[in-house]
Simulated scan of single mutants.
Amino acid sequence: MNHIHYVGSDAAHDSNFVFDIPQGHQCWLLVITKTPAQFWVNGELQKYPSQSAVLYRAHQKIYYKACADKYVNDWIRFESDEPYVSNLPSGIPFSLDDPDYCHKLIELLVIEHHFNRDYKKSSIDCLLRTLFNKLLESYCHDGFTTQYYDLLRLRAAIQNSPGDHWTVPKMAEYVRISPGYLQTIYKKTFGISCMEDVINCRIRLAKEYLFQGSRTIHEVADRCGYQNVEHFCRQFKQVTGFSPRNFRLQASHSEQVREHPVI
Rank of each mutant, 00 (worst) to 15 (best):
L105H: 00
S86P: 06
F94W: 13
F78R: 06
D69Y: 02
H113S: 05
F115K: 14
L109V: 01
E107S: 07
D69W: 00
W75A: 13
S86N: 06
V110S: 02
I111A: 12
V85Q: 09
S80R: 06
V72R: 08
P89F: 13
E79F: 14
E107C: 13
G91N: 11
V85A: 00
K104V: 09
C102T: 14
C102K: 11
E79D: 09
L96Y: 07
H114Y: 08
W75R: 07
K70Q: 03
L105E: 05
D69N: 02
S80I: 01
V72W: 05
L109D: 02
K65E: 03
P89T: 11
V110C: 10
A66S: 03
N87L: 15
L96N: 00
L109R: 02
S80Y: 07
F78Y: 10
R77E: 04
V85K: 04
I76V: 12
S86Q: 15
D98A: 14
W75T: 10
N73M: 01
S86V: 04
K70F: 05
E79L: 08
E82H: 11
E82M: 06
H103V: 04
I92D: 01
N73F: 06
L105D: 02
F94G: 11
L96W: 00
C67Y: 04
D81R: 13
V85D: 03
F78I: 13
